[in-house]
Design a protein around this nucleic acid. Structure first.
Length: 213
DNA sequence: CAGTCGATTCACT
DNA sequence: GTGAATCGACTGA
């Protein structure tokens, strides 16, 4: 009998918890992205928590808009946003309906479908860079606004699914300030990563943009 | 309705 | 380490 990988999705209740519980619990688990060309699987190595209620760093802090609406919906769905005029980043919505929080997927290791990811990440110098950074991760997995709102908890043929798998033990989790977050939101140690994992992205403090002429 | 700037990445120096 | 790329969401008048 051939061993087949367990493709059971995480139950929605997993995501219904507070984002600060869910975010570190995602580390080591696998996101399955099914593209028209084939599957790509990502083992998550770095995440950041965004709490829409009290967190000035969150897109949901100032209320619901056309862009962030998915975060106000049920947990376990995917919030994808477009930024810097060229990149996409993806979150998993957490908490009950009405608590607009989410976990930003910042980095991971491609564990299946690396050929497909390499075609989309031509500037990557090695496979560790394929998904090292949130926009690189979304690019490698071919994720854009078309997937905004996708349910990652269903076992059906959906384009994205979070698998149950096994999270890394808490002893292998490090935490620190979030990357690129400005103002009061920068103080919280709400970035979580697998200690010493080579696919984790480098920390950068927020850099205000220069005035254009 | 114009101005500002972003949960970033890449090419260059 | 520095600056450009690039566009749409959001803000405030």
């Amino acid at each position: 009998m051939i061993a087949t990988p367990d493709r059971t999705p995480l139950p929605r209740e997993f995501f219904a918890r507070p984002v600060l519980e869910v975010a570190p619990d995602l580390l080591g688990r696998v996101l399955l992205r099914t593209t028209p060309d084939g599957p790509i699987a990502l083992r998550i190595t770095e995440v950041e928590a965004y709490d829409g209620q009290n967190d000035p760093g969150s897109h949901a802090y100032r209320g619901r808009t056309a862009r962030n609406g998915v975060m106000f919906g049920p947990p376990g769905h995917v919030y994808v946003y477009f930024t810097y005029g060229m990149w996409h980043c993806m979150n998993l919505v957490t908490g009950p309906v009405g608590t607009p929080s989410g976990a930003l997927l910042r980095a991971g290791e491609i564990v299946e479908g690396a050929e497909l990811a390499r075609k989309r990440r031509l500037s990557a110098r090695n496979d560790k860079e394929l998904a090292k950074g949130p926009a690189r991760l979304a690019t490698a997995l071919d994720v854009d606004r078309a997937l905004d709102g996708t349910d990652a908890c269903t076992p059906d043929d959906t384009p994205l699914r979070m698998l149950t798998g096994t999270a890394v033990p808490s002893g292998q989790v490090s935490s620190g300030p979030r990357t690129g977050v400005s103002g009061d939101g920068a103080v919280h140690p709400w970035r979580f990563w697998i200690t010493d994992d080579p696919t984790v992205s480098p920390y950068r403090a927020h850099t205000p943009r220069r005035r254009s002429s």
